[in-house]
Simulated assay, not measured.
Amino acid sequence: MSERILLPLDGSALGEAAIAYVDGLIARLAPEERIEITLFHVITAVRQTLHLQGGGMISVPYNEDELAKLKTDATTYLEKVGERLQHKQITLGVKVAVSENPAEEIIRAEAEVNADLVAMSTHGRSGVSRFALGSVAEKVLRGGTVPVLMVRAVAQESAA
């Protein structure tokens, strides 16, 4: 079992799908081993992108106060999510970064926390939507240096 796991989260319920898998793996494969889990969130550095009539684009960044609030909110979110992983053998850490490229930031965090494994959810897009939106999970898989556990997120059916 990996001793240091980086678990990137995007703030969505679908993005949290990997949490249950990591929890189950630890319980089944390493019930007595000490595991360090770092919950990680990347705040997009740009608040808004405006498309200009001439075909250009301009990015509007967050100001310092807005970024400070977003970082505080993200840390609170990660700590709350981390409550689901409170086992005696888990040491939990949280890390927040600001970037325009989440995949690069995840790969950087992988090295910073000396991760043995990255466990993350993927929305499972394919075809045109994957091409248009890109795949953070795929970029991390191809660009990182450690194994990546990808868990396909499945939307929950709403009760009618």
Rank of each mutant, 00 (worst) to 15 (best):
G124I: 08
Y62V: 04
T49R: 14
L133G: 06
M57V: 12
T145N: 12
A30N: 10
K69C: 02
S59D: 15
V128Y: 11
V94Y: 07
F131Q: 08
S12E: 08
G55Q: 09
E33W: 01
E36A: 11
Q89T: 15
A160H: 12
V96M: 02
L92M: 11
Y21P: 02
N63S: 03
L133Q: 09
P31G: 06
Q48K: 13
A160F: 09
G11F: 00
S126I: 03
Q86L: 11
A115K: 06
V154M: 13
H41D: 02
G55E: 08
P8G: 06
L50P: 01
A18V: 15
K95Y: 01
S59T: 12
A103Y: 09
E100Q: 11
V148Y: 03
L25P: 05
I107A: 07
P147S: 12
H41F: 05
P102Q: 08
S126F: 01
S158I: 10
A115H: 07
G15Q: 07
T75G: 01
E157V: 13
T44Y: 15
Q48L: 14
E79N: 14
A74E: 06
L14I: 06
L9H: 10
I107E: 01
K80R: 12
G134V: 06
T122Q: 01
H123P: 00
T122V: 10
T91S: 14
G124Y: 04
V140L: 02
V22R: 14
E66A: 11
S135T: 07
T38R: 00
A97K: 15
G144R: 03
A109I: 08
L149F: 12
E105F: 00
A30Q: 07
Y77D: 01
P31H: 05
E3S: 14
A27G: 12
K71P: 02
R152D: 01
Q156R: 14
V22I: 13
V96P: 01
G127M: 02
L14N: 12
E157R: 15
I90Y: 06
D23W: 12
L50Q: 11
G82Y: 08
L7F: 06
E100C: 00
P102E: 06
G143V: 02
H41C: 04
A137G: 01
K71Y: 06
T75P: 00
Q156S: 12
Q89W: 03
R125K: 11
L29I: 09
E33D: 15
V46T: 15
I43M: 09
K88R: 15
G82V: 09
L52Y: 02
L29S: 12
L117G: 05
L14H: 05
V146N: 01
E3H: 15
